[in-house]
Design a protein around this nucleic acid. Structure first.
Lengths: 166, 166
DNA sequence: AAGGCTGGGTCTGCTTTGCAAACTTTGCTA
DNA sequence: TAGCAAAGTTTGCAAAGCAGACCCAGCCTT
């Protein structure tokens, strides 16, 4: 085993960032969207599946749970329930992304990228593009706009930053 | 309500990207790490909390469930169980991030950013930096390296891309 | 107007998962 | 040798998930 790999998989950790989860915004995020079904539902909406029946069929989720998750997603402001009438049809509902829900795209894209890198056996058929049909990716940059590798990212606290610069 | 906001919250959706979740790498990712506890455990490890007892105390998770999630994370290759002896102490275990686990950082950072933008009531105390102690952020770019807004991102399929360019 | 169809849910009974708290094991250290 | 702590396992009960049945409002046909 070469040295770089060893450093990657088992770095000696002595720095403990002691911010309890209750104070961590990530923990609160997980409370809202950390449920597996909620993420899958958001994925459906992003891919244009906005109706109850189709989601239920796609996901194979129990109707009761789907109903519950949709309600909660609306409560949390991730989705919006929209009345929608197609010509010659009766009134239907759709669930549409709100700005808050759409803002989860970077997280979902990052997760997808990870899955493609580490779990894929065949390439993903879905693709995410910008207006010019240029594929988009998620990456980490520092304040100067320079791309950074995950291996160079460290967790610290504002207090620590202040202490260094002050 | 102004027009841009309306467009944001309820775009008319006629394009349905019909790739079932079973074929979607995102769905498989959610199978591995979509559990709320697993994400919180990864957050602990990233912040330097690598021992069973401390995690259990921080998270308030049941010991049985913590044990189960750690085992699964090791099975999935997200974490590695490392024997670890401090001088004058008996042998202990630590759970360390593998390369696969560390590769989830962009997703977790993106989620954190989202939480800071939409859920925060007070600023996060934890910060993520690069080697130069410059704070890092996650952003979406296209193939030309140009930053893209979430509002301009659309889902499509490889088939569709091929059809346009071909 | 009667009946049927469909989208969008509830309801029910059973199974699985989660939880707190007690218990176990192993290897120090006193 | 007794005691302690880290890292689990066990147990008994509570909550959540599931499949499948049921329900109801609107619209359409006859």
């Amino acid at each position: 085993m070469d040295e770089t790999k060893k450093a990657e998989t088992a770095p000696p950790v002595d720095r403990v960032i002691d911010v309890p989860p209750s104070e961590c915004s990530l923990a609160r995020a997980i409370g809202e969207i950390g449920d597996a079904w909620t993420l899958l539902i958001l994925r459906e909406v992003i891919c244009g599946v906005t109706r109850f029946e189709k989601m239920q069929e796609d996901l194979g989720i129990s109707r009761a749970v789907l109903s519950d998750r949709l309600q909660k997603s609306v409560e949390f402001g991730l989705l919006e329930k929209v009345e929608h009438r197609e010509p010659g049809q009766r009134m239907r509902h759709r669930y549409a992304l709100t700005a808050k829900g759409r803002a989860l795209l970077p997280a979902l894209l990052a997760l997808r990228q990870w899955a493609d890198d580490f779990l894929r056996d065949e390439p993903s058929r879905t693709v995410f593009c910008d207006k010019d049909m240029s594929r988009v990716t998620v990456l980490i940059t520092n304040e100067a706009g320079k791309q950074t590798s995950v291996n160079d990212v460290i967790a610290t606290t504002v207090d620590d930053i202040d202490a260094r610069s002050g």
